[in-house]
Simulated assay, not measured.
Amino acid sequence: LFVISRMSAFTYKNKPTKVRDISREMGVQYVLDGSVRKTDEQLRVAVALIDATNDRQLWAEQYDRPFTNIFAVQDEIVQRIVTTLNLQLTLWEQGMLVRKQTNSLEAYDYALRGVELSFRAAYEAKKDLNAQARRMFEKAIELDPQYAGAYAGLGKVHYQDWFYVWSPHPAQSLEEAFQTYKTAVTFDDSLPIAHAILGEVYLWKKHHDQARVEAERAVTLAPSDADSLMYLGSILIFAGEPNRAIGLIEQAMRLNPRHPPAYLVSLAIAYRVMGRCEEALVPLQRAAALAPHFLQTRANLAMCYAELDRIPEAQAEVAELGRINPNFSLAWVTQRVPFKDPAIIERMVAAFRKAGLK
């Protein structure tokens, strides 16, 4: 079952868009439309499944349920879609369509807020947003101490504290990220994103084999999950398989047409590692337009421009890196970057020196 990422679908929220336009832009045949209304204790969900190729409504339904039973309503809607489309899914696949990670709606709300804040922290390079995200995930965990998704979000916060050197004790933050992801997997071993980002932490701890195992586990659990594919692709770049990584990242982009800038940067890193800097500039420049303060974009632009002997542009990117994060340095690169092949790290250092990074 090919399902477009919810992040891409959300771009049409509250916008008067024709179903056929959505179908063409997203590359899908079916569109699920609907609305949710909530009173103090009652929830009304109205949904309609539309075949976008002929604008024909396949079915419509209205669900009036107690507000505390939202997850049961989600399951019911999904099962109706499966029946209507006559999809040949296994019971396991049906069970994965809607995950009930918590029975606490308040915890779920805090976790959603945390996800938004942690994404903004990375793309806007703001330490305070990361701190706010931490509080949201911690509140979610207080409400549901076994909420695996909230632990996964909290692990991301710890990881960003380490990566961007926002923590006064970076090594401790990386270890906290590692332990928090392991807790998420303990509470829900079938949660793809927990395995995927646990793989990322293994990568930055320079445990390449374990990183690959976790990311491949995530893809096995959710073969159509764009983020899991992207994380696996990113890990393979550092492990020495950039060609395979490109295919996985492009597949992730197809599954999530509104992909975040990190997808573009990962694709560019694969090109750069292969010595294809001209090609790398295309996704990097797109990423820079989407998120001008994203550290990874500026760092890779600086290296590519340096390797292409476009020194003024490389120097401008290094200057921008200093404004975004004064902690970024040659020492950061040599001590942290987890390429399995030391020759690639030497190439990176040479490019950064050429661009003027100290």
Rank of each mutant, 00 (worst) to 15 (best):
F2R: 11
S8T: 15
A9R: 06
F10E: 15
N14T: 10
N14P: 01
P16A: 15
V19T: 14
V28G: 10
Y30S: 14
Y30P: 11
V31W: 10
L32G: 14
S35N: 09
S35A: 10
R37N: 14
R37I: 09
L43W: 05
I50E: 13
A52R: 03
D55W: 00
F71W: 06
Q74A: 10
Q79M: 12
V82M: 05
T83A: 14
T83H: 05
Q88A: 15
W92D: 15
Q94R: 13
G95N: 08
N103T: 11
A107D: 02
A107E: 01
Y108V: 11
Y108H: 12
D109P: 00
Y110S: 01
A111T: 12
G114S: 06
V115F: 03
E116T: 14
A122L: 13
Y123V: 07
K127C: 03
N130Q: 09
R134K: 10
M136W: 00
F137T: 10
P145Y: 04
P145L: 10
Y147Q: 12
A148K: 06
G149T: 12
G149P: 03
A150C: 08
Y151W: 05
Y151G: 11
Y151I: 10
Y151P: 08
L154H: 04
G155C: 09
K156A: 14
V157F: 02
H158Q: 01
F163L: 14
F163S: 03
F163D: 08
P168T: 14
H169C: 02
Q172N: 07
Q172E: 14
S173Y: 02
L174A: 08
F178L: 07
Y181A: 09
V185M: 05
T186W: 04
T186K: 14
T186Y: 11
D189C: 03
S190G: 05
P192S: 13
P192C: 13
I193F: 08
A194L: 08
H195Q: 10
H195F: 13
A196D: 07
E200S: 11
V201N: 06
Y202I: 02
W204N: 00
K205P: 00
K206M: 00
K206T: 00
H208E: 01
Q210H: 08
E214L: 03
R217V: 01
R217S: 07
L221A: 06
L221T: 02
P223T: 12
S224I: 04
D225G: 07
M230C: 11
M230S: 11
M230A: 13
Y231C: 12
I237A: 07
F238W: 07
E241A: 15
A245L: 09
I246Y: 01
I249K: 03
Q251H: 06
M253N: 00
R258F: 07
R258E: 12
R272Y: 00
A287D: 03
L290N: 06
H293Q: 15
F294S: 13
L295F: 13
T297G: 07
T297H: 05
A299N: 04
M303D: 03
M303I: 02
C304K: 06
E307F: 00
P312M: 14
P312I: 15
E313G: 10
A314M: 11
Q315L: 04
Q315I: 02
V318D: 07
E320R: 15
L321W: 12
G322F: 01
G322M: 04
R323W: 01
I324L: 09
N327H: 12
L330V: 05
W332V: 09
V337W: 01
F339M: 04
K340E: 06
I345E: 07
R347V: 03
M348G: 06
A350V: 05
A355E: 05
L357V: 04
K358P: 08
K358G: 15
